[in-house]
């Protein structure tokens, strides 16, 4: 069984500590919904797992199938089976999307893919997410709409067929139609037994891509873990209950000793206005 395990991970950007001891384990065949207030380190965790050089790991470990991957660059991590669908996919002017995709495919093969095989694969993947085929001739993400960029991410995920999908706010900026294509692709990933770590603010996506459980980052730590009943609770109530019920401060940089709470099913207060 494949596992991705993060152990006491401390990460800083430009000398400022953002992650302050993250512990989290994901197995294949499970989908973990990563929640947390804005700016508390969700994207930072995913970027660090993928190996962005700006995110400096001060201490801790990231283990893929028990092997520490911190010494590997992003390219090696990709080949080991990690994929990050980015919250804000990068625009790369002058690099045609198709050329890039072919290099990405060839990076994990001994013999380069034939042109006909490549176009067949591309054809299928573009259809799957309803991405206009002729856009593969344009520069990578340059001038793409928000929705086109996100579809391009999911399309690459389908083509590269990773073991673990890290999915960062894939549904923000998408219209309902696009969300459905993306959700369907992710559901298929679930059915294939992938391990998925996913960030989304919308319960809508989670109606189709049902999480196995949730984890909540507060101020750079996983402050709370629970089963998938918390998807609805967070959707209805937001995060205040962490403070009122569990005494977890939602402020960044608070001096209070960190709390980690791990629970099963929750009780939902539907009347949040009170």
């Amino acid at each position: 069984m494949h596992t991705l395990e993060i152990k006491d991970l401390h990460v800083s950007i430009d000398g400022k500590e953002i992650l302050k001891g993250v512990n989290l384990k994901i197995d294949e065949n499970e989908t973990v919904a990563l929640y947390g207030p804005n700016g508390h380190g969700k994207s930072t965790l995913l970027m660090t797992i993928m190996g962005h050089p700006r995110y400096h790991v001060d201490s801790g470990e990231i283990l893929l199938d028990g092997e520490n991957i911190l010494m590997m660059d992003a390219s090696e991590r990709s080949k080991k089976g990690l994929f990050l669908a980015m919250q804000m996919p990068i625009e790369v002017p002058g690099v045609p999307t198709a050329d890039f995709l072919r290099s990405a495919i060839n990076s994990r093969r001994d013999k380069p893919i034939s042109l006909s095989e490549f176009y067949k694969l591309l054809n299928e993947a573009t259809k799957e997410v309803n991405f206009p085929f002729d856009m593969v001739n344009r520069s990578l993400n340059e001038g793409f709409s928000g929705g086109e960029k996100k579809k391009n991410e999911i399309m690459q995920m389908l083509i590269l067929n990773p073991i673990f999908d890290l999915v960062d706010e894939i549904d923000s900026g998408l219209d309902v139609d696009a969300i459905n294509y993306v959700a369907k692709a992710l559901k298929e990933e679930q059915e294939k037994g992938k391990g998925i770590l996913i960030i989304s603010h919308y319960a809508r996506l989670y109606e189709i891509v049902k999480p196995s459980r949730v984890a909540i980052i507060v101020d750079g730590r996983i402050a709370f873990e629970g089963d998938n009943s918390y998807v609805e609770k967070i959707d209805v109530e937001g995060y205040e209950w962490l403070e009122s019920e569990f005494n977890i401060s939602l402020k960044k940089g608070s001096e209070a000793k960190p709390k980690v709470i791990s629970l099963g099913t929750c009780a939902i207060r539907k009347n949040r206005a009170k």
Partner: peptide, 29 residues
């Protein structure tokens, strides 16, 4: 060189040298 562009290409499996080659060709195109 645009660090984010380099990371993006590498995060999809391109070796650093291949990623740099694509960015170089783009720049000189």
């Amino acid at each position: 060189v645009d660090e984010n562009a380099l990371f993006y290409l590498q995060s999809r499996g391109l070796k650093e040298s291949d990623a740099k080659a694509l960015l170089t060709l783009a720049h000189l195109s």
